[in-house]
Amino acid sequence: MGSSRAVTAVGIVGLGVISRQYLETLLSVDSVRIVAVADLDQDRAQAVAQDIDGCRALTTDELMAAPDVDIVLNLTIPEAHADVALAAIAAGKHVYGEKPLAATLADAERIVAAAAAAGVSVGSAPDTVLGTGVQTARAAIDEGLIGQPVSASATWISAGHESWHPHPDFYYLTGGGPLLDMGPYYVTSLVQLLGSVTAVSGAASRSRSTRTIGSGPREGEEIRVDVDTHLTGILHHASGALSTVTVSFDGVATRSAPIEVHGVEGSLVVPDPNTFSGEVLLRTRGGEGWQTMAPSAGYEDSGRGVGLVDLVAGSARASGEMGLHVLEIMTAIMSSAATGARETLRTTVERPGLVPLTPAASWRRD
């Protein structure tokens, strides 16, 4: 992406819980500057703006029309992702959004097509995969340390977000559920590690029709559940590797490694892809047990928003095309679970380039 200014000006739409993490990252980076924020709660927008030098609180429409906004950071709820992204594109602005790219595959396809037609860039979370955890594992695969990759597994189990989130409703509505909420971290990691997916098979279940909020001002309130809350998918990668992903709001906990990758000469344990770092373990054929790998790739000390920084720099490793492919994988898992048939995918994506080991001091201030 390009800008007429040396520093890319960012306008943020949506100032919920996740925005704090983005603000922490972006306010420490010299290549971007937050110039405007918008939220349905104007008081919240005003409160955020007054803490950022040169930032003003606007309505969403005003932010889209603002000539000094180069890129829109879309942190709205999933059901609003497409409307906000398409409005930004129509205004000639680049856009980077929280995952999933959109609540439906059709909307995600519209976003990518509209951006291509307008000549603007689209990026999509998760950008956790650009940290040293997943990228060090990726480097090990690229260097042939496990030989030909054969399989992988990804597992995330919890009792659901209503135990801690004060307003968990959207996790259980269309566009939510454990697959669209947590799945992007795991599926994106599997694509980063093993490449694009050509077909999937899925199964799903739903344990309850309502959930009870466990904390905050609405504690004890029941909310409805409109989506499946336990899903498993088998991913057929174009490389020939097979991977399995299981995500659930219907368990309690798991001791399974977040991600394991197995090749003919070795195996890798990959850290939690909802974080940016963590230990990568390698065990090779004939080796002496599991060895901890030193970080060898990825943005050090990274946080949410590094994908936007990467996009601004012209690398676009957390691209809209990646977000689209990952969303099709997930929606195909859900479709396959509903029909019992294997689903062939229409989209594909090039495996992004490896992130070289990038010291924190080279991309963000202390």
Rank of each mutant, 00 (worst) to 15 (best):
1 M>R: 12
4 S>E: 13
5 R>N: 12
8 T>M: 15
11 G>T: 01
37 V>P: 03
43 D>I: 06
57 A>S: 15
60 T>I: 14
64 M>D: 02
66 A>I: 00
73 L>W: 01
73 L>S: 07
80 A>Y: 11
89 I>N: 06
101 L>A: 09
102 A>G: 03
112 V>D: 04
116 A>M: 04
116 A>E: 14
119 G>R: 04
120 V>H: 03
120 V>S: 04
122 V>I: 13
122 V>G: 05
127 D>T: 02
140 A>I: 08
147 G>Y: 12
151 S>F: 04
155 T>F: 03
155 T>A: 12
169 D>R: 13
173 L>I: 09
177 G>M: 13
179 L>K: 04
185 Y>Q: 08
187 V>E: 10
198 T>F: 00
207 S>P: 02
207 S>T: 15
208 R>G: 01
209 S>W: 11
213 I>D: 01
213 I>C: 00
224 R>I: 12
241 A>I: 00
241 A>E: 07
251 G>H: 07
253 A>K: 12
254 T>L: 05
260 E>M: 12
260 E>F: 00
267 S>T: 10
268 L>Y: 02
273 P>L: 07
274 N>L: 02
286 G>Q: 07
288 E>V: 12
291 Q>L: 09
304 R>S: 15
315 S>A: 13
321 E>N: 08
323 G>R: 11
330 M>P: 10
331 T>H: 09
333 I>T: 09
335 S>N: 11
339 T>D: 03
345 L>D: 13
365 R>L: 13
